[in-house]
Design a protein around this nucleic acid. Structure first.
Length: 476
RNA sequence: CGGGGUGUAGCGCAGUCGGCUAGCGCGCUGCGUUUGGGACGCAGAGGUCGACGGUUCGAGUCCGUCCACCCCGACCA
């Protein structure tokens, strides 16, 4: 290990992030530029994210399926805006089995086109609707600049694709899944997110409307952490997804798509992490409790390990890891597990054996303040309560941080000031593409999403009356 | 694609006025002592110095070409 300590977030946030991802063994750089290897610890976190999301998808009536990785290139060109949006970042397969292919195949950057093609085949009648399918998959987008988890050439995600008989139903689905994402983010990951609609400039290529959940990272930058698209009949028309309604009239379907990716791991890291390392929310943490045995002599070891055994048995309802590595000092192990963000640590030493106690150390409260000695009897409940407390306090802390860094602005000058180093700006906004582009060019801040608003106000940029409000921030 | 940086042991680096056996720290292996906030001693293992070409008696070091990766911008989940 080169340096024992991570760079602090203050001195170099980006470097803090990069080193943390590598050193916590979440991910590593792959041999190909811009690609990453998700290591077992990172993948275990992703699996927990998957479970939490998948349960919610099933509970809202969705089923999983798997569509192919390779898509005929011609599919990509059928929806005009879609092709314009994705053409620059496609990976294309031109050869197979040593032969040049008749038609090149693109590696899916997203699956609307292939899934739309299949839906056209499967949907005939209003009785076939709605179709509510999700797939867990990897996709490839040839990005220019990459960063572990946040933007890599290949990433893992889920993409839901639904088809409905009416516009209203499709809109409701779009909103429902946005709510599902927000519920997951807030209640599982303790990542407070803001739900909102994207501007015309920022919306998905081919969508009628895009909604997103936006999270604030530790450096106050915004991260789009999940998206839900109302596709109208755009893809239905491009891929000929039609059905006969009750009146024997041929109609185009209304479709939606929505996704959350491994980028969300980045959101968790940058929402909760501190200078000591990761802090993982208990509900998603691969390891919820780490037990560190402490002893000097063999006699002590025997007694301590006996107690460790007892405790892990009592904690079988949790994801527990015993760090029995020999030859490492307790201090080293404490730092190691703090780097890896395990929410709760239990120390068991000779004193505890003698007193019938356990030493608990909360990851979210560093140092002495986070330590407590509790009776071993009843530790199952103590740990359960403690994990709940940690989960809740992470959310409270992150929410406060976010709210402390969002500022109402009434002028462009104020926005520039806020967005430069203070956080997010929110203000009345007379929606205009050109002005939005200008703000982006001059401040590097983008319109993250529209904010809830009541009545009318004066646009901070144009001075015109408007009924819309919007968040602006620099983003990832 | 523009700007910056880096390629020498698993990781981090030194060596770059050409010179003989390529070095340091961490990590790794073995043994011993340690262990309640990043332990220590001793003994070891580990290298086609990013690739190709050139100059030279001699190249990690000089020259040329190429490649790769990282960071900062334009593009994006």
């Amino acid at each position: 290990m080169e340096e024992k300590k991570l760079p602090s977030r203050q001195e170099n946030y980006s470097e803090w992030y990069n080193q943390l991802v590598l050193r916590s063994e979440m991910a590593d750089y792959a041999p190909v530029r811009g690609c990453m290897v998700v290591r077992p610890y990172g993948w275990a976190l992703w699996e927990n994210i998957q479970k939490a999301l998948d349960n919610r998808f099933k509970a809202t009536g969705h089923v999983n399926a798997a569509f192919p990785l390779l898509i005929p290139q011609s599919f990509m060109t059928k929806e005009k805006e879609h092709v314009e949006g994705f053409a620059p970042e496609l990976a294309v397969v031109t050869h197979g089995g040593g032969e040049k292919l008749e038609e090149p195949l693109v590696v899916r950057p997203t699956s609307e086109t292939i899934i739309g093609t299949m839906y056209a085949k499967w949907i005939q009648s209003y009785r076939d609707l709605p179709v509510l399918v999700n797939q867990w998959a990897n996709v490839v987008r040839w990005e220019m600049r990459t960063k572990l988890f946040l933007r890599t050439l290949e990433f893992y995600w889920q993409e839901g694709h639904t088809a409905h008989a009416t516009e209203q139903e499709a809109i409701e689905e779009t909103e429902r899944m946005l709510d599902v994402y927000a519920d997951f983010a807030i209640n599982e990951a303790a990542v407070p997110v803001i739900k909102g609609r994207k501007s015309e400039t920022e919306k998905f290529a081919g969508a009628k409307a895009t909604y997103s959940i936006e999270a604030m990272m530790g450096d106050t930058k915004a991260l789009q952490s999940g998206t839900s698209h109302f596709l109208g009949q755009n893809f239905a028309q491009a891929f000929d997804i039609k059905f006969l309604d009750e009146n024997n009239q041929l109609q185009f379907c209304w479709t939606t798509s929505w996704g959350i990716s491994t980028r969300f791991i980045g959101a968790i890291i940058m929402t909760h992490g501190d200078d000591q390392g990761l802090i993982l929310p208990p509900r998603l943490a691969p390891i919820q409790v780490v037990v560190v045995p402490i002893y000097r002599k063999d006699e002590e070891k025997a007694l301590v390990m006996e107690k460790v055994e007892e405790v892990t048995k009592a904690l079988s309802a949790f994801r527990v890891k015993v760090d029995a590595r020999e030859g490492l000092t307790p201090g080293f192990k404490f730092n190691d597990w703090e780097l890896k963000g395990v929410p709760l640590r239990i120390e068991i030493g000779p004193k505890d054996v003698q007193n019938g106690t356990l030493a608990l150390a909360r990851r979210d409260i560093p140092g002495r303040d986070g330590k407590s000695f509790v009776p071993m009897a009843g530790c199952t409940q103590t740990v359960a309560d403690m994990l709940e407390t940690i989960q809740a306090s992470l959310l409270t802390k992150a929410t406060k941080f976010r709210d402390d860094h969002i500022f109402e602005v009434e002028s462009y000058e104020q926005l520039k000031d806020v967005v430069n180093d203070k956080g997010w700006a929110v203000g009345w906004w007379s929606d205009d593409r050109e002005n939005e582009a200008k703000i982006k060019e001059e401040t590097r801040a983008t319109l993250r999403c529209y904010a809830p608003s009541e009545g009318e106000g004066v646009c901070f940029f144009t001075g015109r009356k408007t009924n819309k409000k919007a968040y602006f921030a620099r983003g990832y």
